[in-house]
Amino acid sequence: MILGLDIGGANTKAASADGSFVESMYLPLWKGCDLEGALEAIRRRAGTADAVGVTITGELADCYGSKKEGVERIAGEAKKVFPQAVFYGIDGEFHSDVSDYRLFSAANWSASARFIGAAHKNVILIDIGSTTTDIIPIVDGVPAARLTDFERLSRGELIYAGALRTSVAALLQKAELRGKAVRTSSELFALTGDVNLLLGNISEEDYTCDAPDGGPKSREGAALRMARVVCCDLEEMTVAEAVELARQAYRKQVDDLKDGIAEVAERHGLKGAVVCGMGDFIGRDALAEMGMPFTLASGIYGKHISRVFPAFAVARLLSASLERS
């Protein structure tokens, strides 16, 4: 088995190159979660791995004093469990160590884009996870995005909003309710997980991250959290009004995504997209409104692979690299 790992700040994902093994676990590194123990559990469940490719995205977690420290500590934990592990860099190569940490910082989008680029030479890859959205231009089969998150944020290639963990107040500063414009509270009262649960975009089981209030990940629980965004509860606000608030938050997220896609498409002259990630429905809705042709990765590889796409991509890239050598 050739195994791919995508170790993020909130989620750790694994997939085999043949797609027979897939796993994703909510593992917030900033809370001091046991990364080594989680990787050991993956190792046991996956079985013998002949080769392991790792991509790192958790280095920005604020349990680390710098990206360098984050990359080195995550790589160290991976090597304890998988001594054979090699690390994918934004140069498109695999490395036995992470001495030049800048090659490995937030490199998972590059693995996905290089894998997609082999089949779709000129396309936009849109990966919408629980936390962020990558909008990656692929030109002549090669990722054409800038190499740091800071640079990508400045060019519409990274939107720091996802399908679960984004604060509703970060998306929506003002809502229209009862015929009034109402400012929202900047407290962490509700997440996009609550939005998407209320709108039927995800199931209760899909809501894998912590709810802000630690309460139930149910429709009523989500409605209460949404009510708090405008300083209400469910005695002061109806569930129907909470759903309306969710619709407005979702509308804002779709519009923000459309702006990013349009910026990237115009810059590179790209006219189609491939969408993956657990929030692919957001990309689907944005692209449909834009009239841009798109392919859902879930339709090709299955929903389970789409949700862990960078892990799958790094496994496939490593497999191809080993075949060439």
Rank of each mutant, 00 (worst) to 15 (best):
T208I: 15
R228C: 01
S218M: 02
R225H: 01
L197R: 14
T208D: 10
S203N: 11
A227G: 06
E204P: 01
T184V: 06
A227Y: 05
D194E: 12
I202M: 11
N201Q: 14
D194N: 07
I202V: 15
L198S: 13
G200K: 14
C209W: 04
G193R: 07
S218I: 01
E187Y: 12
L199M: 15
G193C: 05
G221Y: 08
P216E: 11
G215Y: 08
L197N: 08
S203A: 12
N196A: 08
G193I: 04
G214D: 03
R219H: 12
G200N: 13
L199N: 13
I202E: 13
D194Y: 07
V230E: 00
G193A: 15
A181P: 00
T192L: 13
T208Y: 06
I202W: 13
R228S: 05
A222C: 04
L224F: 03
S203H: 10
N201K: 15
D194T: 09
A227N: 06
M226R: 05
A181F: 00
D210I: 08
G214L: 00
A190C: 03
A181M: 06
P216T: 05
Y207F: 15
A227V: 04
R219D: 07
A223D: 06
I202R: 10
K217L: 00
C209F: 08
